[in-house]
């Protein structure tokens, strides 16, 4: 069996979103099974309004130009590719409740689960990363 990568995305912001999705895409490209657990501000990465919600950290705004120059795909494009490649996207039910979000606030293909749903996947993971 191939490798398994479990990622926790708990921060908002464009930088975090790229870290999460780059590792996820590299994971599936190396034939790993990848799941991302989105919790707290990380939920903004899978939000339908992610473009408005994800901002650069203060003082990092100048990076926008670099991202364009380096031809980096947008977060929405990355997320679409991740879904197409079979990355499992799990929204954290508890933080959704706390933040007043429902499944309808997220892009299609997100499943909702609790900590055990993620752990169930992570117990058999070869790599676990948190952003």
């Amino acid at each position: 069996m191939g490798k398994r990568v479990a990622i926790i995305a708990s921060n908002g912001g464009i930088e975090s979103a790229y870290k999460v999705l780059n590792i996820a895409m590299a994971g599936v490209a190396t034939e790993a099974e990848v799941a991302i657990f989105f919790t707290f501000d990380g939920l903004s990465i899978i939000h339908k309004q992610s473009e408005q919600m994800l901002k650069f950290a203060p003082g990092h705004e100048h990076l926008a130009e670099g991202f364009t120059k380096a031809n980096v795909p947008s977060i929405a494009q990355m997320l679409e590719m991740a879904k197409e490649s079979g990355v499992k996207l799990i929204g954290c039910q508890m933080t959704m409740d706390v933040m007043g979000l429902t499944k309808d606030d997220f892009v299609d293909g997100v499943e909702v689960g609790g900590a055990v749903t993620f752990l169930d996947f992570a117990y058999d993971a070869d790599v676990t990363v948190t952003f």
């Binding site: 780059n22 590299a26 031809n71 980096v72």
Partner: peptide, 13 residues
């Protein structure tokens, strides 16, 4: 050409 990480790998796969 012109693509940055991880896109070359994604395309390669």
């Amino acid at each position: 050409k012109g693509l940055s990480c991880p896109m070359p790998i994604v395309r390669t796969k």
